[in-house]
């Protein structure tokens, strides 16, 4: 296919469309921030006393658990946002408008790019809200501004990766109901990592899985960037996972977009 000269302007047009959807129907954006905030409060005030006591570090207790759980909750925000992305792309595909876009001389990637960039912005807003609540309940990053900026960049990269994957997941189904369930495995996967409890406390098989799944190195890197814990090779592994997941999600989504619309 020849390169179409309007990739950027078409993508910007599609992004404007997605942002307008969010602005007009803000419930999805609110849920994206609300659910992680509720989970944060739940984990800190309901489970936090006990879980914090079991952390076994220098500091123990509820305040120590706030510090421990925030990186996991930030990734939870990304995962909840992914559910919204999958739902909105699946809804879009059930409407005739995307079929119309396919018959127009516009850059093919622009429809997907608009969704992805829109979702990344939406998730970034939710992350900011979650971060403010975390600060209010006593989360204190101990590192410097450079590390915080790096943490934000890693969160952005993770969001991009998870969003491309959830766009593909949302497209792989033809019903909005199925699409809304697909990214649930991301939420589950988060619990099977180092986000909420240290992996050392898990049985051997599970521990091996928890330490080698993609979310754990991302969480460990975030923890290091925000709280100064050792990062080791987690940073490199985290970036590699993000790049790999982005690429797979992008290629899969593009392939799904190019395929024939299902025959009715």
């Amino acid at each position: 296919m020849t390169a179409w000269p309007h990739v950027l302007s078409d993508s910007a047009t599609m992004l404007r469309r997605n942002l307008r959807h969010m602005q007009r129907y803000p419930s999805m954006t609110l849920m994206n921030a609300g659910l992680p905030v509720v989970l944060l409060l739940l984990f800190v005030y309901v489970f936090g006393g006990t879980l914090g006591a079991g952390l076994g570090g220098v500091s123990v207790g509820r305040q120590a658990y706030v510090a421990y759980v925030v990186p996991g909750i930030l990734l939870m925000t990304v995962a909840v946002g992914a559910t919204g992305t999958a739902i909105s792309i699946a809804m879009d595909l059930t409407e005739g408008i995307v079929a119309r876009f396919r018959t127009m001389a516009i850059s093919r990637a622009s429809v997907l790019t608009g969704h992805v960039v829109g979702s990344v912005i939406q998730t970034a807003l939710a992350l900011a809200v979650v971060m403010v609540v975390a600060l209010l309940i006593g989360f204190r990053p101990t590192t410097g501004p450079l590390a915080w900026v790096t943490a934000a960049a890693l969160l952005a990269l993770t969001t991009l990766a998870v969003t491309w994957l959830s766009v593909a997941l949302g497209m792989s189904t033809r019903s909005v109901e199925t699409a809304s369930n697909l990214p649930m495995f991301l939420v589950l996967l988060l619990f099977l990592g180092s986000g909420f409890v240290p992996t050392e406390t898990m049985p051997d098989g599970l521990r091996w899985f928890a330490e080698n799944q993609p979310f754990t190195p991302i969480i460990e890197t975030l923890r290091g960037l925000l709280l100064g814990t050792p990062i080791g090779d987690s940073g490199v592994i985290a970036v590699a996972w993000c790049a790999a997941i982005s690429l797979v999600g992008f290629l899969w989504a593009r392939k799904l977009y190019e395929r024939d619309p299902a025959h009715r």
């Binding site: 129907y25 408008i97 079929a99």
Partner: peptide
């Protein structure tokens, strides 16, 4: 192209 199913963006 105008198809059988409304190809409009209902949110806009």
């Amino acid at each position: 192209v105008t198809g059988q199913f409304s190809a409009v963006d209902k949110f806009l």
